[in-house]
Design a protein around this nucleic acid. Structure first.
Length: 1158
RNA sequence: GCGGCGAUGGCGAAAUUGGUAGACGCACUACUUUGAGGUGGUAGCGCCUGUCAUGGGCGUGGGAGUUCGAAUCUCCUUUGCCGCACCA
């Protein structure tokens, strides 16, 4: 019986799927364990061998934990919102939802082949409304929160309101505007708009104008971590600074807690270091320098207040607000010139020319607070507006940049550190004794820092200050394929949707181009954006479609109801309606006029009524848009039966959209105006409840206007109401997805507290380093906020993080000959010639002989093509390198035939080979990528060797955390091992060879050594050594000719996490009572190590002379020092090395070794 | 410039606490199974040197140090990768 891995793997995968072997429940008597992979972005290129590395590692660990008796949560999903799908849509017109769906299917097919133990019932996709409903919901919770510095946690905005009403903001500095101060009285006197503006400056997600990273090519803003060296991380497009309204996460409020939290989690040093760097906390002082002939001081930030007497000049950022004010008339021109120059330079140029020294003197002087010196104020690019105060005190003897600047502009340098400064370069030491430093003279700099700040604070010219490099994270993108913000704007105030109105679904678009004014594609969908009933074309902004093809909900409704006259179906019709309405206003009835006089100018309840204002294509007598109330005065026209029918249909439609209507007859108005007005006032008050009801009804029916926001909240705001048209960034969904896995189908909450309390933190998180400061930081932030708000019980999402290394591709190159041809009679085409590695090397080195050889070869080829062409000569030969698909290369030898077929133009290519007739390719290790033709498809390997082999080989390559080049060749060794294992059970010739015989001590020793090692290795993620251990074990059992079930069955349980299919098959053939997959286990089924079996009574002690091992001597393990000495000295080899001398010392370490020192 | 991580045979690597450096696998060599290829099996395989044979010297990027003993600890240095970067 052969090891037919294809059949075995297919059958078992099918079986596990059918009996839901990997289903995980939220309640269990067993302890929980949560193993998580970073879910993939489903890209169009599918998986290469680098992707599954982490998945295999986590799968092995999950299976291992399961066998050890844990209830293991091991889910998988897709981060399916994102830029690439949308870029693809822009290029091809295919809807991102469609391509994403397709890509996911491909991913799933590939993943399934590898035999993972995911519970697919818990799958999440960030682009599913069922998922992003909760992303939006969490966003709203964050929106409704602020950071209380006193309790040091996020709290609800309602709490903040209470504080403001009672005490103003004296205890709570406004993070958005630190200068803002108001008392309770002032607060209470502010109007609603001012309230909302101030609250926005406190919210943890907020919208504000700010400098953003704008990427023109991508048509969107990017977060700081998405910009690398001045270009976009994706695509490498230029990024510029631009002022725009954006949403932000106030992550800076959490800087300290994010920093502090790192102490309690198990991340690699590198990872922690990266996060620390990103947060960039620095301790220093902020201090004011008076400016000569000027009221306002210059505020600077420094981490080295001890160097205060070494200041020789001040530098402020070119963008600094004081520049304008302090520049003297003499310098105005120079400064203008410099500012123009700075503005002309893109971010990229600035970064590229970091070492260039530029700057300009403003003509102004600051006054040194201690010695009264006048210090010139300069502006220079090297000071950034965004950090600290945007101004520095320059100490050239201690700071290299200041030093270079001083040298460049011939500014004198004060030395305050004596011999530590050599005049050649700055010395940033803290160990020097200060000189020329007034009251700090004679102090060690380290000590002087504190002394200086104390003095500064005492004089009231500055204070201790902590600064962070981290900025608030941009949270909006001018893009389509992301979560829509559950926010509507009304007269500049952001109003959150009600929870019941979520999810706010992403509307369908046909075009993905940007909207007007730098807005995203959603801005093009007028009907979706504008919630003001029946907005005018002016309100709508631009018109996306041609007039004739405009088919919005209004016209749809009109067609449905068969009311051609009442609803607009085109702009033309709308205009008609409008002019009709205008006409109507001139011809008010008597009753109408009576009412109008009573309700105009917000006379009733402050509600704004309009008369004859077109709405939903019809023109009611009066309408209050804020409260969605219509008043009709029943004229004669409407008494006709036919018109009554229309009225009913219309009223029905209006009701569905949240409009209430009250009607009066002309008589009523004339006879009892007071009663009529009372009724209006009454209805305005009551209407809110009715409106909510109708809105919900509309939602259920998924009317085009469904989810149009809560009218209740618009009260008192009025005016144009439109949706936020940005979408959330890629990291929104991934900031909390690990919580959704715990309770994936919950439609009442993002995750039940019971579920999150049960599963708690992710015990093991495996993924790449590329998310160090993006996803990992943001998800830590969201977790902390959700914790503060009481939705979950832990404030760090991941207990332990393991970063898998990158698998690099091993690229292969071919060397094409580049020829410069001189041709007498006319043009000849260049022959396509490829030379093998050694020849190309020689040509590159300028080896005359090889160049001549190639020339002759080329001439011959040309002459053969152009028979009589004798006038051709070759003047120069060069070498061009091209990536060649690694699949055409066996090791380094090119398969010439396959290569010829690769591209049409290669069909007739000629090859100059090595002496042994082979074409040898160039080799280089680089990132695995389709464009480099060095990707290896895991499915081809699974097809050829099986999933078990593939899994083990990926692990065998080396430590999971290390980057390493892929080499397909080695997979044979692992495959050999699995076949060797199989032969312990079944032999090709003899068939079944396994027996029920009793195991010997030697065999048990082999088994238990293996159990111990595998257990330890798996526990510490040393999967490569575990695979070796399996190999050693099988080699030893084969040597012992051991075919005993007693030994082999436990071995299969050990192996099962690594190679589940073969283990399951062999266990089944052995007739095992328990599955090695662990699906039916109530408790641990993992083999238990029995130390007693490994106890030895003696050991081959290595004996070294002066540290070099010379022989081995077998001695009892518990032998004493005295006995050792006696035995050792009798040994021939030791005698030989002693050469008659007495040993100085004999070191004996029990269970280790013996060392004789001569 | 700052920070982090590494450097061990032809290659991927192992050495968990300072205790026999190179386990395991690939590649390679020889033999064997087979008609042949593949497969399977046996043996060899760090470098240098040497023999009838036991052997000897060197060796974990380089240099110094601590130690009876260092791939492992300390200092210096070279170099590679990764991250941050006019961050005051």
């Amino acid at each position: 019986m052969e090891y037919d891995f294809r059949k075995i793997e297919q059958e078992w995968q099918e079986k596990w799927r059918q009996n839901k072997a990997y289903k995980v429940l939220n309640e269990s008597a067993r302890p929980k364990y949560y193993v998580l992979d970073m879910f993939p972005y489903p890209s169009g290129t599918g998986l290469h061998v680098g992707h599954p590395l982490g998945y295999i590692a986590s799968d092995i660990y999950s299976r291992y934990k399961r066998l050890k008796g844990f209830n293991v949560l091991h889910p998988m999903g897709y981060d399916s919102f994102g830029l690439p799908a949308e870029q693809y849509a822009l290029e091809t017109g295919q809807h991102p939802a469609v391509t994403t769906e397709k890509n996911i299917a491909t991913f799933r097919r590939q993943l399934d082949k590898i035999g993972f133990s995911y519970d697919w019932d818990r799958e999440v996709r960030t682009s599913n409304p069922g998922f992003y409903k909760w992303t939006q919901w969490i966003f709203l919770q964050i929106f409704d929160s602020w950071y209380n510095r006193i309790t040091d946690k996020a709290e609800r905005i309602a709490e903040l309101l209470k504080i403001f009403e009672a005490a103003g903001n004296v205890d709570h500095v406004c993070p958005g505007d630190k200068t803002l101060q108001f008392s309770a009285g002032e607060w209470n006197a502010f109007d609603e708009r001012r309230h909302q503006e101030i609250l926005m400056d406190y919210r943890l997600t907020y919208s504000s104008y700010g400098e953003v990273n704008w990427c023109e090519a991508l048509g969107t803003v990017l977060a700081n971590d998405e910009v690398v060296n001045g270009v976009s991380e994706r695509g490498g497009y230029p990024v510029e600074k631009k002022k725009m309204r954006q949403w932000y996460l106030r992550i800076t409020d959490y800087a300290d807690r994010l920093l502090e939290g790192l102490e309690h989690i198990d991340f690699s040093d590198a990872m922690k270091e990266m996060q620390k760097n990103w947060i960039g906390k620095s301790q220093g002082a902020e201090m004011d320098f008076a400016i000569k002939d000027h009221d306002q001081p210059l505020k600077v930030y420094t981490t080295r207040p001890d160097t205060i007497f070494g200041v020789n000049f001040m530098v402020v950022a070119p963008e600094h607000e004081l520049v304008d004010q302090v520049t003297t008339d003499d310098q105005k021109e120079e400064i203008e010139k410099y500012l123009t120059y700075v503005k002309s330079r893109s971010e990229r140029e600035r970064l590229a020319e970091v070492k260039q020294i530029t700057g300009c003197f403003t003509g102004a002087y600051a006054i040194h607070p201690f010695d009264g010196r006048e210090i010139p104020i300069w502006i220079a690019e090297y000071v950034l507006a965004g950090y600290g105060t945007g101004a520095i005190m320059a100490v050239p003897c201690g700071d290299q940049r200041d030093f270079l600047f001083a040298k460049h502009f011939n500014i004198p340098i004060t030395n305050i550190i004596g011999d530590h400064f050599n005049g050649e370069e700055a010395n940033p030491t803290k160990e020097a004794i200060l000189q020329n430093s007034g009251f700090l003279n004679g102090l060690l700099m380290k000590v002087a820092i504190g002394v200086a700040v104390d003095k500064i604070e005492e004089l009231g010219i500055g204070r201790r200050k902590v600064n962070y490099r981290m900025r608030d994270a941009g949270f909006s993108r001018q893009r389509y394929w992301g979560e829509p913000f559950p926010i509507v704007w009304s007269n500049g105030i952001a109003i959150p949707l009600d929870a019941e109105e979520l999810p706010l679904e992403l509307p369908h678009v046909d075009k993905y181009g940007p909207g007007p004014n730098g807005e995203g594609p959603l801005a093009n969908i007028v009907d979706w954006v504008y919630l003001t009933p029946n907005p005018s074309p002016r309100e709508r902004g631009t018109l996306p479609h041609g007039d004739e093809e405009r088919t919005d909900h209004l016209s749809v409704a009109s067609k449905k109801d068969g009311e051609p006259g009442y609803f607009n179906s085109s702009v033309e019709e709308w205009k008609n309606t409008l002019s009709f309405a205008k006409e109507n206003r001139k011809n008010l009835t008597e009753a109408g006029d009576t009412i109008w006089q009573e309700i105009r100018n917000r006379k009733i309840d402050g509600s704004k009524f309009r008369r004859q204002h077109p709405i939903a294509g019809y023109i009611p007598d009066f309408v209050c848009l804020e409260k969605k109330l219509i008043i009709e005065i029943d004229g004669e026209y409407h008494t006709e039966e036919e018109q009554k029918k229309f009225d009913a249909a219309r009223q029905n439609w209006l009701a569905e959209n949240g409009f209430g209507m009250i009607r009066f007859t002309n008589e009523e108005v004339k006879v009892n105006l007071k009663k009529v007005l009372n009724k209006i006032s009454q209805t305005l008050k009551e209407n809110t409840a009715a409106i909510n009801e109708t809105t919900n009804k509309a939602n259920e029916k998924s009317h085009p206007l469904a989810g149009s926001g809560s009218p209740l909240l618009w009260r008192g705001v009025g005016g144009e109401v439109k949706r936020e048209t940005s979408t959330m960034p890629g990291y929104a969904g991934s900031s909390w997805y690990f919580l959704r896995y715990m309770d994936p189908h919950n439609d009442r909450l993002f995750c039940d507290r019971k579920a999150s309390d049960y599963w708690g933190q992710v015990d093991l998180y495996i993924g790449g380093t590329e998310h160090a400061v993006g996803h990992l930081l943001y998800s830590r932030l969201w977790t902390k906020i959700l914790f503060d708000l009481g939705y979950i019980g832990h404030d760090e999402p991941y207990k332990k993080l393991v970063n898998q290394g990158m698998i690099q591709g091993s690229s292969r190159f071919v060397f094409r000959v580049g020829l410069t041809i001189y041709s007498e009679p006319g043009i000849v085409s260049t022959p396509l010639i490829f030379v093998s590695k050694s020849i190309s090397d020689k040509i590159k080195l300028g080896d005359e002989f090889s160049i001549e050889k190639v020339k002759i070869f080329a001439i011959k080829s040309i002459e053969e093509t152009y028979r009589n062409n004798k006038g051709t000569s070759i003047t120069a030969v060069s070498i061009l390198e091209f990536h060649v698909d690694v699949n055409f290369v066996d090791g380094v030898e090119l398969n010439i035939n396959a290569f010829r077929k690769w591209r049409e133009e290669y069909n007739d290519a000629e090859f100059i080979l090595e002496d042994d007739g082979k074409y040898i390719c160039g080799v280089e290790t680089e990132k695995m990528s389709k464009s480099k033709y060095n990707t290896v498809n895991p499915n081809e390997l699974v097809e050829k060797y099986g999933a078990d082999t593939f899994r083990m080989y990926e692990m065998f390559l080396g430590p999971v955390e290390q980057s390493k080049p892929w080499d397909t060749k080695g997979i044979e060794g692992v495959h050999r091992f699995l076949r060797k294992l199989w032969r312990l059970f079944y032999d090709d010739q003899k068939g079944k060879v396994w027996t029920d015989d009793k195991a010997t001590d030697a065999e048990l020793k082999v088994l238990h050594r293996t159990i111990k090692k595998i257990d330890e290795d798996t526990e510490r993620f040393s999967f490569n050594t575990a695979v070796s251990t399996f190999m050693i074990c099988v080699n030893e059992l084969a040597d012992l000719k051991c075919h005993k079930k007693e030994i082999l069955e436990p071995l299969l349980f050990l192996l099962s996490p690594y190679a589940p299919h073969i283990s399951a098959e062999l266990c089944s053939l052995l007739g095992s009572k328990v599955s090695p997959i662990g699906e039916d286990a109530e408790g641990p089924v993992y083999p238990v190590f029995n130390a007693a079996l490994l106890v030895e009574s003696s050991k081959e002690y290595p004996v070294s002379i002066n540290g070099k091992v010379r022989t081995n001597i077998n001695m009892a393990l518990d032998i004493t020092q005295a006995d050792v000495e006696q035995i050792i000295l009798q040994n021939d080899i030791v005698q030989k090395w002693l050469d008659g001398k007495e040993p100085k010392r004999i070191v004996y370490v029990k269970n280790k070794m013996v060392n004789v020192v001569i």
